[in-house]
Design a protein around this nucleic acid. Structure first.
Lengths: 239, 239
DNA sequence: TAGTGGTCTAGACCACCGG
DNA sequence: CGGTGGTCTAGACCACTAC
């Protein structure tokens, strides 16, 4: 782990523990240089991380202030996550189980082909999973993954976490994801599995996840019950 | 403008012009050091910007590849914008007009008070605007702003762009925003002004915008017709 | 093994905020 | 004005990829 990440981790911990209280100033960067025995560029990089996370705000001439966003509703999921729901939910003490609705291998539709940068001859898994959070049917996931990149996918994996399998068994690492969020009307699948009324809205998150070599590995649409999940994110001006 | 931003702008332009085609490698960083007469740290900072924008992908040992996301649907708005809709839409050649539904000064409700970090005694503007994109009623905005921070707000400003007024007349600058996206059922206002059926879903974007001194300046809820606007964003692994 | 990008340093200069 | 954070450099070492 790079030094600037370690420093950011330590300072983040101190903020959360209250050693650096909200609305006070952090020690200045030259002091931090001494404490962590680092150069100022490295300290600055750590500060950039904390800024991007919304924990602090730096102003030239005025120091770096610890922010307080405790009022913000934590019941929704952060939108900047590409490692699956299992990980997210475990953090906040919720339980997640999955039910497999469909698990097939097909040739890609034109839409899937374009999103995953494939040819017509390269088969993909088509997976539909119902995600059950704390016992409530909450999310219906339609997922497509190239068979060639994900050999050996089984029911057992799908019942647990696909992302854990990709990371720990296949040793794949991710570069990031494109996402699109829209509202939609409940379709027949939603009504059947999310216990939706035909008039209930659905929050659809469409995403393409990329490996760190730039190849797309997943195209999915997650249809969320409107009263069960929303998405939050922080938008910080470039530093 | 910092040198690394200028360099990023130039390289971004070259990518869009096709001088650096998709799926090819950029010149390596030592070459760029020479061309731009900069240090490698500065070049790296420019690369970080382009990476965050999803234009390129760097891999140690393998170079920096130009990505191609042309397939992605451009009809939706990028979610990482805090300078109002006027700016966004002008970029893609759409016209925006506004109709003022409500414009009052009130004492803040507990919710508004908490979001804007105010006391009960500090009055806020309560504004409801209908945003009409290309002649179609598309978004209903409920906005709260502290009167003390935004003196002299008039109908005339509201009919155009609040953000242009904040930036150019009041010389305020922004640090960023917290956002929350959810789906909801159409309420009476939505039905009346967005021409929604009672059964139509609505995409609600809730946001608190912060000034660069950390003070909240706006709390708003934008209710979007589900068939008119969605939000896209890019999630890149830390660099 | 050659070449790439990622990290880190020590020091410098500057823009900005506050008293 | 003193002190802060933002930027930039020149050079170094290292981890990684691809051949």
């Amino acid at each position: 782990m790079p030094k600037y990440e370690e420093i950011a981790n330590i300072i983040r911990q101190r903020i959360k523990q209250g050693r650096y209280p909200a609305n006070t100033l952090l020690p200045n960067q030259t002091d931090l240089v001494q404490e962590f025995n680092a150069s100022r560029m490295t300290i600055k990089k750590a500060m950039t991380i904390l800024t991007m996370e919304g924990l602090v705000l730096s102003r030239r001439g005025a120091g770096t202030k610890v922010l307080d966003h405790s009022f913000w509703d934590k019941s929704t999921a952060p939108a900047d996550q590409y490692h699956g729901m299992s990980h997210d939910l475990a953090d906040i003490g919720k339980t997640l189980s999955s039910k497999i609705i469909m698990f097939e291998v097909i040739f890609p539709t034109p839409e899937v082909k374009a999103r995953l940068m494939l040819t017509e001859q390269q088969p993909v898994y088509q997976i539909i999973r119902l995600r059950i959070i704390d016992g409530i049917n909450s999310v219906l996931e339609h997922t497509y993954m190239p068979v060639s990149l994900v050999p050996g996918l089984t029911d057992e994996v799908l019942k647990n976490s696909i992302y854990t399998y990709l990371k720990e068994s296949l040793h794949l690492t991710f570069a990031g994801a494109f996402r699109n969020i829209q509202a939609d009307k409940a379709d027949e699948y939603d009504q059947a599995y999310l216990d939706c009324a035909p008039t209930d809205p659905v929050l659809e998150v469409e995403q393409v996840v990329y490996l760190d070599n730039g190849q797309p590995i997943e195209y999915s649409k997650s249809r969320n019950r409107y009263d069960r999940r929303g998405y939050t994110f922080l938008d910080v001006k470039n530093t």
